[in-house]
Amino acid sequence: MHNNKRLPLTCVLLASLASTGAQAEIKLHDDNQTTFSTDGYINAFYVHNDVDRPGDQFDRRQSRVKMGFLPNWLGFNFSRQAGDLKLGARSSFWVTINDSETNGTETGIDVRQFYGTIDGGWGQVLIGKDFGLFARSNILRDELLSGFGQASDTLGLMDGSGVSFGNIGTGYPYPFPSAQITYRSPQQHALKVAVGVLDPYDSNEVGGTGKAYQSAPRFETEVSYQTSLGATELYAWVNGAYQTSENTDGSVEDVTSRGLGYGVQAKLGDTSLTASGFNAEGMHPLFSNNLGQANLREIDSKGYLVQIGQQIDKFRLALSYGRSEDDGNLLGGEADYENKAVLLSYAVNDNLKLLGNFSRFEIDDKQAGEIESTDTLAVGATLSW
């Protein structure tokens, strides 16, 4: 199979969630078996947060104008037929719309995808930077992807200049973009397999007298299956990650990090049901690449996410409940993280959507009780091509 028309996976999902039509890239060049195209996404929300934390020091109501769970991006795609092979490439530039009070116009450009692909009848090989495989379908099948979701004050999201978290930390960790070499099986089969070696991360002692190191890369994989059972469309997946991290200081314990993600989505007409979850050990419960270099331990975390979506003409209504439990790698003690949300969207046309999203996010320390309860109302629009 020589079809390597590879939009970014977030574009693919947004197209599947759109209430009318399908999103398509804009071709800038198409000649002599060579194509060059662009796609993009812009969004902004009026956001009102109501924070309740122990004592009165942090309790407040805050109004912002921010982007949602997805940043804004501009992407470019290249493909060329070269004999029996189809060569492709993608670069995407993700942009925050919020500047900093301390650094002025700090609008950052974040390159989350920069890779090449080689396609043949045997499948595809990707080389470069792309999202990880562990928890990949968990996040891409989230109904809140084009919405806002949770914005925890404890985690620094309410006043930050970045994105909200959707259901990151309340159902799945974020499959961070990483340097990788990944093989994918041919696309024509209902069963699809992806296997990759990724750049590893330090998960044991970062400072001190020794040096953390990894004698093997990180291994990640995802197996998915898509079929139809009568009038029901079914998509199921299992993904995972594994790596070890050692230290030249013999007194520092090695850390083995392993994660398992899974889920199923069923669509019957205009109704969709999604259930997913994960179990992990020795991994950051928010970020698959240990952003911030926490000194991780072989401590467990787990979570699940259940959602129902209903399409009514140009409207889409989604109800969401997500929960993660971490035994101590994030805050140092056992805590539960929970997000209840409702999302209502209206597709003005194929490229423009209006959205309203309400979420209640809670953190409960298993010893000290409630740490935070934050209500978030976000109303905005998304523009895509």
Score class of each variant (00 low, 15 high):
Met1Arg: 07
Asn3Tyr: 11
Asn3Leu: 08
Arg6Ala: 15
Leu7Trp: 13
Leu7Gly: 08
Leu9Cys: 10
Cys11Ile: 15
Leu14Asn: 05
Leu17Asn: 01
Ala18His: 06
Ser19Trp: 00
Leu28Pro: 13
Asp30Glu: 15
Asn32Leu: 06
Gln33Tyr: 06
Asn43Asp: 10
Val47Trp: 03
Asn49Leu: 12
Val51Arg: 06
Arg53Thr: 02
Gly55Gln: 01
Arg60Ile: 00
Ser63Ile: 01
Gly68Lys: 09
Phe69Ser: 12
Gly75Glu: 07
Asn77Gly: 03
Asn77Val: 02
Asn77Ser: 04
Phe78Cys: 04
Gly83Phe: 04
Gly88Tyr: 10
Ala89Val: 03
Ser92Arg: 05
Thr96Gln: 09
Ile97Trp: 01
Thr102Asn: 11
Asn103Gly: 03
Gly104Val: 14
Thr107Leu: 14
Ile109Val: 15
Arg112Gly: 13
Asp119Met: 06
Gly121Glu: 14
Val125Gln: 09
Gly132Met: 03
Leu133Cys: 06
Arg136Val: 03
Ser137Tyr: 05
Asn138Tyr: 06
Asp142His: 05
Asp142Arg: 05
Leu144Tyr: 03
Gly147Ile: 05
Phe148Tyr: 14
Ser152Met: 10
Leu157Cys: 06
Asp159Ser: 12
Gly160Asn: 07
Ser164Ala: 10
Phe165Ala: 15
Gly166Glu: 07
Gly166Cys: 08
Pro175Ser: 12
Ser178Glu: 15
Ala179Ser: 12
Ala179Ile: 12
Gln180Met: 15
Ile181Cys: 10
Ser185Lys: 01
Gln188Thr: 15
His189Ile: 09
Lys192Gly: 15
Ala194Trp: 12
Val195Glu: 04
Val195Leu: 15
Gly196Thr: 12
Pro200Arg: 14
Tyr201Pro: 01
Gly208Ala: 07
Gly210Cys: 10
Ser215Gly: 08
Phe219Lys: 08
Ser224Phe: 07
Tyr225Asp: 07
Ser228His: 09
Gly230Arg: 03
Thr232Ala: 13
Trp237Leu: 04
Val238Ala: 08
Tyr242Val: 14
Tyr242Leu: 13
Thr244Val: 09
Asn247Pro: 07
Ser251Pro: 02
Leu260Thr: 11
Gly261Met: 10
Gly263Glu: 12
Gln265His: 02
Ala266Asp: 00
Ala275Asp: 01
Asn279Phe: 05
Ala280Met: 08
Glu281Met: 07
Gly282Met: 05
Leu296His: 02
Asp300Ala: 03
Gly303Glu: 05
Leu305Cys: 08
Gly309Ile: 02
Ile312Leu: 15
Arg323Met: 11
Glu325Phe: 09
Ala335Thr: 13
Val342Pro: 03
Leu343Phe: 05
Leu343Ser: 03
Tyr346Cys: 12
Ala347Leu: 00
Asn349Gln: 01
Leu354Trp: 08
Asn357Trp: 06
Arg360Tyr: 00
Arg360Cys: 03
Ile363Glu: 13
Asp365Cys: 10
Lys366Asp: 11
Lys366Val: 10
Ala368Met: 04
Glu370Phe: 02
Glu372Pro: 01
Asp375Arg: 11
Asp375Pro: 00
Leu377Trp: 12
Gly380Trp: 02
Leu383Val: 09
Ser384Phe: 05
